[in-house]
Design a protein around this nucleic acid. Structure first.
Lengths: 143, 143
DNA sequence: TGTATATAATACTTATAGGTATCATTTATG
DNA sequence: CATAAATGATACCTATAAGTATTATATACA
């Protein structure tokens, strides 16, 4: 149900970077904002570079930046890079033949849940995550 | 999104046992029907006994049986025993303070998904899994 | 052109879920 | 009461996600 730690990390990194979508971020800067274990963060950043939404600049004055506007990067794009198996259509009971020739009794309900999650992720861009403009723009007020 | 292997195993075991809800099953019998690794199955069976819906009888002629009617055992009951963390209300981004004083922008949508999953699991009893009476009673016909 | 500062690559370590092996305990029955 | 047939407990092994360490490479600029 919950995402992997790495997926949470990736969402938080991307959300931060989308606050200033043209800026070149160093790992150090990101680390200051999001306290992900430093060396793991570095590895994750280079991993995210193997996507079509993040690019890196090497050498002194180098860093990472988004390769397209944050409105054109969805949470689904990110998930696909860090945990491509997450939405894989496994049978509710793990039956091998469920989706093939017969369909288990939970199939439709479970497919519905998965479609719902898929839609939420596909329809939420990084730009959608901060609609107001304040410092804690990803937060709404307490209930 | 998907359940752990162990959860899938548990669902399949319980579904099988609910086909004959008074019968005492040996591990060997269950193994013949569901090809879960034998020794792991044994460990899982004794683990399931630490619930209020499964009991064991030791010694020769021993085995496992349900401790109440299958209509009174839900998938949620089973999940709580094998993966109690699955539905834990973690923040979408993994923010520590999300649910406490402020609420992240994905909070409501994610809570909705979780509530949906919770409802499906809580409203599906083992009896619901086989409404028809044939051998493959957990299967519907091909689409 | 040397050095400082950045990312890239790779290998190693740790924590945990899944899986295996062995021995102990319980109980029906000849 | 000995034995066979079942579960119970415990320790160990393995695969993978998470995290750490080290070395290589690229580049700005004094």
């Amino acid at each position: 149900m919950n995402f992997s730690k790495t997926t949470d990390y990736a969402f938080r990194i991307m959300r931060l970077m989308s606050q200033d979508e043209l800026k070149l971020f160093t790992v150090e800067e990101i680390y200051q904002q999001i306290r992900i274990p430093y060396r793991y963060l570095r590895k994750l950043m280079t991993h995210l570079t193997r996507s079509d939404f993040m690019e890196s600049v090497q050498g002194k004055k180098g860093g990472f930046r988004l390769s397209r506007p944050s409105s054109q990067i969805t949470l689904l794009d990110i998930l696909k890079v860090v945990d491509p198996e997450y939405l894989t259509g496994r049978c509710f009971f793990g039956f091998e033949n469920c989706a093939l020739d017969t369909v288990c009794i939970m199939h439709d309900q479970w497919t519905g849940v998965r479609a719902n999650v898929h839609a939420i992720l596909a329809n939420t861009s990084l730009a959608d995550l901060h609609v107001s403009g304040d410092l804690n723009e990803h937060f709404k007020q307490p209930k």
